[in-house]
Design a protein around this nucleic acid. Structure first.
Lengths: 240, 240
DNA sequence: AGGTCTGCGAGAGCACCGCTCTCGAACGGC
DNA sequence: GCCGTTCGAGAGCGGTGCTCTCGCAGACCT
């Protein structure tokens, strides 16, 4: 609960470990999450066990609860880290000087590459929500990073005049906050293209999930080529 | 293992329970799966417990293993039933006399409606694969039903001359078996449109999964309208 | 009809899990 | 140097999947 209190504090200077005790605590917390991540990568989310982490760390399982109030909290930590790693991969893949179609494809490829390299972690992010039902609030900003990158591609394309003007005759489908992320106000961006952007976003993850979860087995012969082809079709949907 | 042997037999007459013992066994098996399904609907797949089903049924947990060799086998049974229920809903929603765009939208709506009505069951089908990794072989035919319906819509549209001729200048992306399901041989069906069909298929489930798993929260204001809009965009991708 | 064979349910038990509580030791600020 | 805080360990609770054994009862065969 001290952890929760300190993170909920606006005064982020308290986050920096100053005393030796805080240093040790931060180190052990990191060690736990690292070990939990490797265990997640091998046995998956359902097989991740607090006791196994403790065993591997050479300490009592009960001591684990000094650092994470529950197994779900540990999972939440891994989820946030996963979203951040994926978001960073997407951001790094985006070259703002390239034409929109290339940027779109590059980001999609980065997402797929990360997913294939971290299948269990990806499943934890985009598979069935494992804890109760709703994702904790603190995961939202990290989860949004890939969407922000894709939104930037769309907005840049619009501002560069690479998109035709939109008819603007669609009902309100997208929230104003999300519209802001998807390029903001621009004559070539109406709610129709914003909805298509959201569709393309979910389609990207639909394709990656289907490949990773085996739904394409027996249908797709060349996964790499199919994915590129599919993502180019989606970019056509966006007007690129 | 008797169950497995009998289902793997080509001679399906052995499936019909003749003796009183087989009747009782079939009844109890059905009772177990029914009870497991309701428990799945309430506590989800991870919370589904063999012992709880046994408790509710008033019998020892060890007796459960006379009917299902493991919890995963019970899960597999529920998965197959789920695929079949979803497939039946899709088939029932498809009106072969309607124009392709309407058929496509109707099937998509049926899939979404079923998913919203059975969220945990849907998560079991299209979320993270819960048992080890690969889906058991016997789930494949049931899992294919929705795809078959969508493939029939595409094939019918092609045979009715409602699709433009395809350039046919794309590398082989789709397996021949799947190509057969997606309308077979026709001048307006090349591997490009087949790949787009696979993309649209995965995009449908990507959109449904995103909505169900909460990734659209805060972005989409009218889920019904957004879904219809998105599915119509996808049907445009198919040439409807 | 009697004997055997087979499927069935129950119980005990194993190893594991998340989580709680308590207690003694070590540490750090006053 | 004292005292409060933090920490790790241990025992324990209720739960899980799964195994093994045993006794019963229905089914089958002679």
């Amino acid at each position: 609960m001290l952890l929760i209190a300190s993170t909920s504090l606006g005064w982020h200077a308290a986050r920096v470990p100053s005393t030796a005790r805080e240093r040790a605590r931060a180190d052990l917390t990191a060690e736990i999450t690292d070990l939990a991540r490797t265990q997640l990568a091998t046995v998956g989310a359902t097989g991740l066990s607090l006791r196994a982490v403790a065993r591997e760390l050479g300490m009592a399982s009960s001591a684990m609860y000094r650092y994470f109030p529950s197994r779900d909290e540990l999972l939440t930590r891994l989820i946030i880290d996963g979203y951040d790693a994926l978001g960073a991969a997407a951001e790094e893949a985006d070259d703002p000087t390239a034409p929109p179609a290339q940027r779109w494809l590059a980001v999609c490829r980065a997402v797929r590459r990360w997913a294939l390299a971290h299948p269990h972690e990806y499943a934890l992010l985009y598979g069935s929500p494992v804890p109760g039902y709703a994702a904790p609030r603190d995961t939202v900003p990290a989860a949004a990073r890939v969407g922000v990158v894709l939104g930037r591609v769309l907005g840049d394309a619009a501002r560069a005049g690479l998109l035709p003007d939109a008819p603007g005759r669609t009902p309100t489908l997208v929230s104003s906050e999300t519209a802001e992320v998807l390029g903001g106000d621009h004559p070539s961006l109406d709610d129709g293209v914003r909805a298509r952007a959201l569709l393309a976003w979910s389609s990207l993850f639909g394709a990656v999930s289907f490949e990773l979860f085996g739904h394409f087995v027996g249908s797709v012969v060349d996964a790499d080529a199919f994915f590129d082809h599919a993502m180019q079709d989606l970019s056509g949907l966006l007007g690129f």
